[in-house]
């Protein structure tokens, strides 16, 4: 199991959480890894809580069951913290990356996250200031690149550039890269 890194994403419909899981996987793949990215589907509409998952490994992946014990938990919407147990199934060495203006200590106390390392980043503010829209998914990816060794910032930026250039103008691509870079710099640990 050690060679597989599992990630669980918590977000709400419309925040780009599923896309973030997809970019995370694609970036890892461009680093030569084997990847899976899959959302949990139900009748989710915009604003409803949802989860998405990743498996990343240096060896081919054959598991097709759910991710129940993630090493990394990314919380794209901090308003979920009160109602969803984001620590469910995690171990002592879990990594939590949470989109919130609060510092990790306050998050740990308020929501009683018992273990693991908590990192926070104000991804929504970064998104508003760079992209002009409250879509926090790209900044969260920047934070993940910083605090995990699963993907690197350089590959993330390169992958974002390649992916977004298919659909968006160079200015928008540049703004996304700026959002990644800022989150990479601004993410805080305990």
């Amino acid at each position: 199991m050690q060679e597989i890194t599992e990630v669980r994403w918590h977000g709400r419909g419309g925040q780009g959480t599923v896309t973030a899981a997809k970019i995370f996987a694609e970036t890892a793949m461009s680093e030569g890894k084997y990847v899976q990215a899959f959302p949990e589907y139900g009748p989710e509409r915009m604003g409803a809580p949802l989860r998405a998952y990743n498996r990343i490994s240096t060896k081919p992946l054959s598991l097709h069951c759910q991710v129940t014990n993630p090493k990394i938990v990314a919380v794209v919407d901090a308003t979920l913290l009160g109602s969803v147990d984001v620590a469910e199934g995690t171990a002592e060495d879990a990594i939590f990356v949470i989109n919130t203006p609060d510092d990790p200590k306050k998050v740990r106390e308020t929501y009683r996250i018992p273990h693991g390392s908590i990192f926070t980043v104000d991804a929504t503010r970064i998104a508003l200031e760079t992209l002009g829209k409250p879509i926090p998914n790209t900044p969260i990816l920047g934070a993940l690149a910083r605090v995990t060794d699963t993907i690197s910032k350089e590959h993330l930026i390169e992958d974002t550039r390649v992916n977004l250039s298919k659909k968006f103008s160079p200015e928008i691509v540049q703004k996304n890269i700026e959002a990644i870079t800022r989150a990479y710099e601004e993410v805080r640990g305990e």
């Binding site: 899976q36 899959f38 097709h64």
Partner: peptide, 12 residues
């Protein structure tokens, strides 16, 4: 192929 498990899951 299995719905969602494969159809909606990104893999190499």
């Amino acid at each position: 192929m299995d719905g969602f498990i494969i159809s909606h899951s990104i893999e190499n």
